[in-house]
Design a protein around this nucleic acid. Structure first.
Lengths: 95, 95
DNA sequence: ATAGAGTAGTTTATTTTATAAACCAAATAT
DNA sequence: ATATTTGGTTTATAAAATAAACTACTCTAT
């Protein structure tokens, strides 16, 4: 039983939290994610873009009550990657 | 159910693999760890020292058959940190 | 109407980490 | 005796995470 590779995109506390969150809610606002993950806006902005680049989440921007609004949702690839990551983690957990 | 903090010392693929390994074997040689974790000697050397600095493992050096031998073993704090880390991970896994 | 504070982010700079490359000392093989 | 291998460490470079600064507006109170 060897140690499986851990997807570097998901092996980041904040990105993992974002994906974990999006899997349960299916769609979430930037500000909601920031609150739930206790992250700074700058860090979150960067990490959301990395997840988007990887194809793990989709980002759409619009205006709501005159303010800009960033909506995020997970993609099928994101769900798949998350499941693989969790599975790989098992190889480190059971001694 | 919030996202728990992930101990940065353990949130590294190689360091996590090392600790996971040491938990099951109680003592291991440098070369054995390098093989099992598929890491380079340089990287492993650095990460072992970080684990030692953190108090998670103990390192003892001796000679065996004329060659230097580095032995590593987990400490009680290391076991504790590993258990906490695994526990914290649960908060990211079940949506 | 305008100064000041607040919202919702992005961009840039800095620090930290991880990884790779180079190196060292001694042992063994040719 | 010189070349290669073992068992590492140290130093340099690349990548990542985080913090600080900035943009572009909006709302509120004067």
């Amino acid at each position: 039983m060897e140690f499986k590779e851990l997807d570097p995109i998901l092996h980041s506390q904040l990105r993992l939290a974002v994906v974990s969150l999006l899997i349960s809610v299916k769609e979430a606002e930037f500000t909601f994610i920031r609150e739930k993950t206790n992250s700074t806006a700058g860090n979150l902005s960067v990490q959301l873009n990395k997840l988007k680049e990887a194809g793990y989440i989709a980002i759409s921007k619009q205006f709501k009550d005159n303010y800009p609004q960033t909506l995020c949702s997970i993609t099928p690839e994101g769900i798949n990657a998350f499941e693989k990551y969790v599975n790989a983690l098992q190889s480190y957990m059971k001694p």
